[in-house]
């Protein structure tokens, strides 16, 4: 008996060690980013730049310490990321209202109402998930330019009022179907119209999935790259993702890395905060996706 317990504990310990190692490996990018953002300029001119922000500089003359200079730079110095952040927020906030609203309305139609062509439309919608987005980007761009939305962020926001995305509709529909029917039935008997039933009964019960949608939409549009890349070409209108790309990724220089990392830390903070606040719901939300089989 004792030997058995001992063996089991040994396995458990080995297991934990493995997990810790794995976690360290996975968390490495974050640590790297934070460390680099605190590195001083002199330090990154070395032939081999160390991990932690402490070290001698290239000529071995100056002992470098961690510094917040990079953070000051991105807001005051050459870069002015507050404006870009605001541009990004405008897009994100609009979508955070439009997407859950639109997706839930459509999902209610699929989940609780009957109408001619329902199965067909649903199947059609699901099949659009297989479309490579590239096929649609070019004609959409031409379409938007011809109606005058060419150099603005409008193509990234307004179209989301029409459905909000096939995947999102699917998720909300799944969720709505798992809500017990009694309340809805009762309300129907009492004579409430579909819209009232949607707004007053079903929606309040959908809070978990709506939170999932909200966070997902935030993440999606906060880091959206391709959309702003083709629609925004004036520096003042760039979103944060594009601004960082143009400043750091496209003419990459090792000496600019601390500034880039500071910008990166800044940009990653918001999704990270949301994630930590809502992680339970997020993981559960993903579980619901998994259940479709």
């Amino acid at each position: 008996m004792k030997a058995h317990i001992k063996r089991k504990t040994a396995i458990d310990i080995a297991f934990y060690i493995l997990l810790i190692v794995l976690s360290l490996v996975f968390i490495f990018p974050y640590l790297f980013m934070v460390n680099k953002s605190l590195s001083s300029e002199l330090l990154v001119k070395r032939t081999l730049v160390p991990f932690f922000p402490w070290g001698w500089d290239q000529d071995g003359l100056v002992w470098c310490r961690p510094t917040f200079a990079a953070y000051r730079n991105i807001f005051a110095g050459k870069y002015n990321y507050l404006k870009n952040t605001w541009n990004t927020l405008k897009i994100v906030l609009f979508n955070m209202v439009a997407v859950p609203l639109s997706a839930s309305v459509v999902a209610y139609g699929f989940a609780k109402l009957e109408f001619f062509g329902k199965k067909f439309l649903f199947a059609l919608m699901i099949s659009t998930l297989l479309l490579p987005s590239m096929v649609l980007q070019i004609p959409q761009y031409i379409l938007f330019t011809s109606i005058g939305w060419g150099q603005s962020a409008k193509p990234l926001t307004w179209p989301n009022l029409l459905g909000g995305g096939a995947m999102n509709i699917f998720l909300v529909r799944q969720f709505m179907r798992s809500i017990p029917k009694d309340l809805d039935e009762a309300a129907k008997i009492d004579g409430a119209g579909p819209f009232m039933r949607y707004a007053l009964i079903t929606m309040p019960l959908c809070v978990p999935i709506l939170i999932y949608l909200l966070v997902g939409t935030f993440n999606g549009y906060w880091s959206d790259f391709f959309g702003p890349l083709i629609y925004l070409n004036v520096k003042d209108e760039y979103t944060l993702a594009i601004a960082i790309f143009r400043d750091f990724n496209s003419n990459y220089k090792m000496t600019e890395v601390p500034n880039g990392m500071a910008a990166g830390v800044f940009m990653s903070v918001f999704p990270a905060i949301l994630f930590f606040l809502f992680q339970r719901r997020l993981i559960d939300g993903v579980m619901i996706t998994g259940m479709k089989g």
């Binding site: 330019t145 011809s146 005058g148 060419g150 150099q151 070409n233 143009r246 400043d247 496209s250 003419n251």
Partner: peptide, 17 residues
């Protein structure tokens, strides 16, 4: 950082359309 002419082209499209 992106092509000067290219951006002008996009502006030109916007101007005309």
């Amino acid at each position: 950082t992106s092509s000067f002419n290219n951006t002008l082209r996009l502006y030109y499209q916007n101007d005309c359309n």
